[in-house]
Amino acid sequence: MERKIRVLVAKPGLDGHDRGAKVMAAALQDAGMEVIYTGLHQTPEMIAATALQEDVDVVALSILSGAHMTLFPRVKALLDAQGQAEVLVSGGGIIPAEDMEALQETGIGRLFGPGTSTSEAVEYIRTWFEENGREAAGQTG
């Protein structure tokens, strides 16, 4: 039996709008993934600590506040520092295309904007896990 993909869905910063994060969390869970939702107002340090404690494969951040150029890299740096460089950091929100490109160049995974179908994000995570997750988790096949 194959283990489930473990995804941490987090809302960093002061943004109080979590409808999109909750919709994505439900879609990922409906797709058979194990989802941990941290709730609102999480610091990057809290997110990285939860990712380590929960042994996740993916950290999906939802950022609508405009702080994406600070928060995505900070979470990634904290994960890397605690030996979790293999964890995919992805997510979405109100992020201009040029910022998405700049973040991806720093090692952040694909980012999704408003109107993206949940199935597109689910498929991205599944594909990433097929290509990377099993090896990172020490699994084969």
Rank of each mutant, 00 (worst) to 15 (best):
I5G: 05
A67F: 03
A102P: 00
P114H: 11
V87G: 02
G141R: 04
G66R: 05
A21L: 03
K76L: 08
T118N: 13
E135C: 02
G39P: 00
V9D: 02
D57S: 12
P44C: 06
E123S: 15
T118F: 10
R110W: 01
A48F: 02
Q104F: 02
G93H: 10
L61I: 05
L61P: 00
E86Q: 14
R6C: 13
W128K: 13
G92H: 08
A25S: 14
L103M: 12
V89N: 04
D57Q: 03
R110Q: 15
G93S: 08
V75L: 07
K22G: 09
A121C: 13
E45V: 05
V59K: 07
Q29K: 13
R3I: 13
M69G: 01
T70L: 13
I94L: 15
M1W: 01
A136P: 00
G138R: 04
P73M: 03
G16M: 09
V89M: 07
L28T: 04
R134M: 15
V87Q: 06
E105V: 08
D30P: 00
I36K: 06
V58D: 02
A85Q: 15
T106M: 11
S62E: 01
F72Q: 10
I63L: 12
R134S: 14
A48K: 09
A102S: 15
S119I: 12
Q29I: 00
T38P: 00
R110D: 02
P96R: 12
R3G: 07
E131R: 14
V56F: 01
V58Y: 00
I63T: 00
D30A: 13
L40F: 03
L28Q: 05
P12K: 13
I108H: 06
D30C: 07
R126L: 15
T106F: 00
T38R: 11
E54S: 08
A27W: 06
D80C: 02
L103A: 12
K22L: 14
G93T: 09
G83A: 11
G91I: 12
G91H: 09
D18N: 06
A102V: 10
L111E: 07
A97Q: 14
T43A: 03
G92D: 01
T140E: 15
A97K: 14
P44M: 11
D18Y: 01
M1V: 14
L71M: 12
I47V: 12
R110Y: 00
G13M: 10
S65W: 08
I47L: 06
E86P: 00
Q139K: 06
D15K: 07
G109A: 14
S62F: 04
G66N: 06
L88Y: 01
M1Q: 07
G113W: 11
L61K: 09
P12H: 13
V7D: 03
V56D: 08
G138S: 09
A26V: 01
I63K: 10
G92L: 11
N132F: 11
A81K: 14
A137N: 14
T38M: 15
G66K: 05
E2T: 11
Q42D: 01
D57V: 05
I95K: 13
E131D: 11
F112A: 10
E45C: 02
